[in-house]
């Protein structure tokens, strides 16, 4: 049913994404699909790494761990955004297109009052991409 599954991950808050990560791995195995783990970073030093190369290293080791734990086909994909806080949604939407993904699996928070102002990242993706979107409540 699915060939390429995009999983946006926030490497700083992995524990809250455990459910989404295991669902993505299971779906990949039943469909024989590849999971592409996507993370967004700024060119400026940030909490994840002092250069984009450092962040990419972290992503790659995370991907290797996931793949070893679940035994599915996995790859990492680093996105660089000038302004990740404001432009994360745009970057993910574009990546979904350029990577030709047909399914997005991601963790999302419970809706709260701020969603009237800012939609969640998962919500924005579901609104704007052709792929199916599976939002997993944390």
């Amino acid at each position: 049913m699915f060939k390429k599954i995009m999983v946006p991950v926030d490497l700083r808050h992995l524990p809250s994404q455990g459910k989404a990560l295991s669902i993505a791995a299971d779906l990949a195995k039943t469909n024989g699909a590849q999971v592409i783990y996507v993370t967004v970073t700024s060119p400026e030093p940030n909490a994840l790494g002092r250069t984009p190369a450092e962040v990419e290293e972290k992503l790659n080791s995370f991907v290797a761990n996931e793949s070893a734990a679940h035994g599915h086909d996995a790859a990492g994909h680093l996105l660089i955004s000038h302004d990740p806080a404001a432009e994360l949604d745009a970057a993910l939407i574009k990546a979904c297109d350029t990577l030709h993904t047909d399914l997005v699996v991601m963790a999302t928070h419970l809706p709260n009052v701020t969603d009237y102002l800012w939609s969640s990242h998962g919500g924005a993706l579901a609104n704007h991409v052709r792929a199916s979107v599976f939002l997993v409540r944390a």
Binding site: P52, A53, E56, H77, L78, L79, H82, A91, K94, T98
Partner: peptide
Amino acid sequence: DPVTGIPAPE
């Protein structure tokens, strides 16, 4: 492209 994926080698 800000979202080309793999960063330019730094």
